[in-house]
Amino acid sequence: MLFHDLTRPGTDEIKVSDDSLLEIEHVTMRFGGLVAIDDLSFTARKKEITALIGPNGAGKTTVFNCITGFYKPTVGRVMLTHPRKGRYYLERMEGFKIAQQADVARTFQNIRLFPRMSVLENLIVAQHNALMKASAFSFAGLLFMNRYAKAEKEAVERAKYWLNKVGLYDRADWDAGNLPYGDQRRLEICRAMCIQPAVLCLDEPAAGLNPRESLELNELLLGIRDHEGVGILLIEHDMSVVMQISDHVVVLDHGRKISDGTPEFVRNDPTVIKAYLGESEDEDLPQTVKNDLARNAGKDV
């Protein structure tokens, strides 16, 4: 497998390397007295699928909200190293600029398409930045007809590309709200991809999908990683999805990171097992043994 999987099983130190995409550094999020995220640090790397897992209420969605600007972290830094544009400190940016300038795309646990717009329009509205620039914020749109028409054509082409990819091309004119559930999920991912994101944050994309749709989703996500080179940050409860497609898993419990490593590593990590299944008899294992377990799990790959 990949080289870095061997080098960093379960380490807590933050490595600033060239291939890091999103670095969460010592992020704490408090709501009054409630600590939703407690001193969380992890790194998502380019062209990798990083899964964020944990029991209900572990703070996974809060992490997403901190990344996408819904919340400003109480403490900490969220740094994005954009492959094309350079560095952004997301915790300092205004909400919509995170998507507009830093190219962070996101989907939601409950689908949030624009239900009364057509499927195609849903994808084109996501590309409004290029269009607005081409039309000089619509005012000069009439004067630069050619430029605008060209930009619009590109936007439609990109939309078509993604529609073809997920098999929704025939339904391009449907109102998005009328699509079946599984199609809406895929369309939401398409819309996020039309932003041409540097990082794609998916909040439970497999929720409510049947096994076949779930497999298709896996392939779509792997395709996005391999062919588009987009880093994916994934919240998922469906362990089969997580274990099959992620390169790197971060486990949260009560707002703290309890494990971080390859899928194989976290699967065998006693602290993870404990968090999911409750106390086990291994709980009093000495630290050295735990470390051994971790090392072995890493080498299993």
Binding site: T68, G95, F96, K97, A99, Q100, Q101, A105, R106, F108, R112, L113, F114, P115, R116, M117, E121, I124, V125, A126, H128, N129, L131, M132, S135, F137, S138, G141, R191, A192, I195
Partner: peptide, 27 residues
């Protein structure tokens, strides 16, 4: 303007889901 231009699409997007519109980078 409302049905065919980028501006109109943004307005309709804001009308239907303001939060989501912000998340796809609409000001």
């Amino acid at each position: 303007v409302i049905t065919r231009t980028s501006l109109g699409r943004q307005q309709r997007a804001c009308e239907q889901d303001r939060t989501m519109a912000g998340l796809i980078g609409v000001n």
